[in-house]
């Protein structure tokens, strides 16, 4: 039997022909994408989605997602693709309205993997209460790549009452995080070939728009929010310090890191401060709003372990500094690039 002419459901891997724009492409979209993602804006399969819009400002963002392996404890590429873009909109202060989904699939990707990832995309979108309203699928020749690349773009609506941005950050402001850091990056490490280990760690990938909305509508004067993804907590703090030319002091003992993550970081020779997260935000608030911000975060399930970790100062030159458990002090910088496990 010619495999290309076989019904799709007897084919267990994506083939180049699935991207050819013909019958198989239609089957792929209908049976494997629309079946899970369907909504009234996506269903007509027009070239673009028409969204009603009220007056005011729109926030527009895009991000591409590449992760090895595609599935890992606590998530998969689909979950981070939806949560990541939702979070990028949310940290801007916007309410996410709609996402686009672009899939670049490598020939040979098992269909059941694709199905699980699309199911995860659908579930995460429901969790974030946002719809995927337009999309695109391409199939590329088999390479030594990772099988699936995802791009999501998103639009959100910026309420006129929200003013978050680096320009609002001032000395004496307080810095918070919404929970334990480093879980995502360490989880990915734990399933990577050559360094793998079994772990109770799970990725923290999650859409944070609910948490952020709770914070923004709870009467807290929120000045700045950013999700601490690649580059970790250190990366975000270095960004704030550099852009505002202000210093930030953080306290090691206050930074939430689970003992399991701390052990994993020690095993790999990594600093939890520079390890990636997919469900953590750094939030800067006015000093007298620290307690209310913390309470607002802790009321949300994704902020139960939120903590005040430090504050902004006008010390010059601008540096991020860590007061260590040992009672010492050091400068924190963003990592070089790819974090590699070390033995030394």
């Amino acid at each position: 039997m010619n495999p290309v002419k076989a019904p799709l459901d007897t084919v267990d891997r994506i083939m180049l022909a699935h991207g050819g724009g013909g019958e198989l492409t239609g089957q792929l979209i209908q049976q494997h994408l629309l079946s899970q993602l369907n909504n009234e804006r996506l269903a007509p399969l027009t070239d673009g989605a028409v969204l009603p819009w009220r007056a005011g400002e729109l926030v527009f963002t895009t991000d591409s997602y590449v992760v090895t392996p595609l599935e890992f404890p606590g998530g998969d590429i689909g979950r981070i693709a939806v949560a990541g873009t939702v979070n990028d909109l949310s940290v801007m202060g916007a309410t996410p309205v709609a996402l686009s989904l672009g899939l670049i699939i490598e020939e040979g990707l098992p269909v059941d993997v694709l199905d699980r990832i699309v199911a995860s995309i659908a579930a995460t979108a429901r969790e974030a209460n946002v719809e995927i309203v337009t999309g695109d699928t391409k199939v590329i020749e088999r390479r030594s790549g990772d099988g699936l690349f995802v791009n999501t773009a998103g639009v959100g609506c910026l309420p006129p009452t929200v003013h978050v941005g680096l320009e609002h950050v001032e000395p004496c402001d307080v810095v918070l995080v919404n929970g334990c850091i480093a879980d995502h990056g360490l989880t990915i490490m734990s399933v990577r070939h050559g360094i793998e280990f079994d772990s109770d760690l799970r990725s923290d990938a999650a859409p944070l728009n609910g948490l952020i909305e709770q914070l923004l509508t709870g009467g807290v004067r929120v000045k700045f929010i950013r999700d601490a993804t690649r580059g970790g907590l250190a990366g975000v703090l270095a960004d704030i310090s550099e852009h505002r030319q202000l210093s930030i002091e953080i306290i090691e003992a206050q930074i939430p890191v689970s003992p399991t993550a701390r052990h994993a970081a020690e095993m790999l020779g990594l600093d939890p401060l520079t390890v990636a997260n997919e469900g953590k935000i750094v939030c800067v608030v006015a000093q007298d709003h620290a307690t209310s911000a913390l309470e607002a975060m802790r009321r949300h399930p994704l902020g139960r372990k939120a903590a005040v970790i430090g504050r902004v100062t006008d010390t010059q030159p601008p540096l991020v500094e860590l007061n260590t458990r040992a009672g010492g002090r050091r400068i924190v910088q963003r990592p070089y690039g790819e974090e590699l496990p070390r033995i030394c």
């Binding site: 307080v174 206050q254 620290a290 903590a307």
Partner: peptide, 14 residues
């Protein structure tokens, strides 16, 4: 456990 994991009263921590 980190400070925030020990269920300290919120006001005290802040």
């Amino acid at each position: 456990a980190s400070a925030s994991e020990t269920d300290e009263p919120v006001s005290d921590l802040a």
